[in-house]
Amino acid sequence: MISAYAAKDMGGELQPFEYDPGELGENEVEIDVKYCGICHSDLSMLDNDWGMTSYPLVPGHEVVGTVAKVGKKVTNLTIGQNVGLGWHAGYCNHCACCQSGDHNLCATAAGTIVHHHGGFADKVRAQANSVIAIPEGMDLESAGPLFCGGITVFNPLVQFDIPPTAKVGVIGIGGLGHMAVQFLNAWGCEVTAFTSSEAKIKEAFELGAHHTLNSRDENALEAAAGQFDLIISTVNVKLDWNLYINTLAPKGRLHFVGATLEPLDIGVFGLIGAQRQVSGSPVGSPATIVKMLDFAKRHNIQPVVETFPMAKVNDALKRLRSGEAKYRIVLTN
């Protein structure tokens, strides 16, 4: 039996929950959960914001732990190995995306917390090729958020071949944004943090930003016209996107990794005249996660975390909802 914490209905408090996972599949692994990050996506699933939650819901998709069991056909992982598990717990492995290495774009990929029990538990199971070995020497307590938030902001750098000479802006210095600033600085980019919080200006510089810009100051945004090669939006709120598009250089890109639910109100002439682009991306493939972990270790990039015991999961969720967490919360077993 697996002991977990689950919500029985939309927005409900998590309660102790046990389930029988059945026989371990031949291509599966079972992980002893040591740490599990809390992502804003866990809240979105808990509240059924995306209309795809099934209850009881066991959240948790930023898992760090050790391999406890391996299926008979698993050859890439061994018992006792330190591993991580992110948004996906499995892939079809035969579609065009999987065959080309873009497993994260598989239309039938299994979400770790979508019709599947996640990592707010003592154990979790997943398909072996969605479980990633953690490099020796990485701090395990803070590694969990890399498997969702970290890879979400790292993936665009790889997908769009962002050069180290790029001028890049990051909207929102929070759970995602604080990792984006660190990655971009280490990548070699000139980094500007868009933030409306005076308190976060000093923190943005400490994380690696070279400049800050008040995201609520229309005059400041207008003065930055034509400046950025890439802007990464990590927020889930509606902004005046046309102002941000105006700050892009010719052929610049406004890229969304934050799941804003409202439609984008964008004037097309701001795109056409300077051949600008608007795009979005999810988490990365297993291969890109491996690349991200190696890069993070090499450059000593770590999410800034607060920790709560797993038994205090409801307190941790309240802390996340408050917006005061700096910057990610990790549950410990």
Rank of each mutant, 00 (worst) to 15 (best):
N314G: 14
G80Q: 08
L331T: 11
G150S: 01
G71K: 02
L146A: 03
T75V: 13
D49Q: 12
F17M: 09
I134Y: 05
E262M: 07
C98L: 10
E203G: 11
E26F: 13
M138A: 09
H255Q: 01
M1W: 00
E26G: 09
A224R: 00
L239C: 05
L317S: 10
T195Q: 01
D102K: 15
L140M: 09
V237Q: 08
S285Y: 06
I173W: 07
H210T: 13
G118S: 12
F17I: 07
A96I: 14
P56N: 00
F17Y: 12
G280D: 01
I231R: 01
G80E: 05
A274Y: 09
V313G: 11
F228W: 01
V74L: 05
K297D: 07
G137M: 04
F205H: 15
A7D: 04
R276M: 00
G84A: 02
L221C: 03
H211S: 09
E62M: 04
R125M: 14
T78H: 12
F147D: 00
Y5K: 09
A6R: 03
N93V: 10
G169Y: 00
A296T: 02
G37D: 07
K326L: 15
G226S: 03
V168L: 02
R125A: 14
K123F: 11
N27I: 12
L230R: 02
V67K: 04
Q99I: 15
I232V: 01
H178A: 02
L43H: 06
G118L: 13
D240V: 07
L239V: 14
M52T: 15
I245W: 03
I2R: 03
I162D: 03
N27Y: 08
V237C: 04
A249W: 01
S41P: 10
I173A: 02
S197L: 10
C39V: 06
S322V: 08
D9V: 09
C36H: 01
G270R: 03
G101E: 11
F256W: 00
Q302K: 15
Q302M: 14
T53V: 05
A89N: 09
N48W: 06
D229W: 02
H117A: 13
G84S: 06
A325M: 11
W87V: 14
V158T: 04
E306C: 15
A6H: 00
H211Q: 11
L207F: 09
T53G: 08
K167A: 08
G284V: 04
P145V: 03
V191W: 02
Q127Y: 14
G80H: 08
N185G: 13
E26V: 13
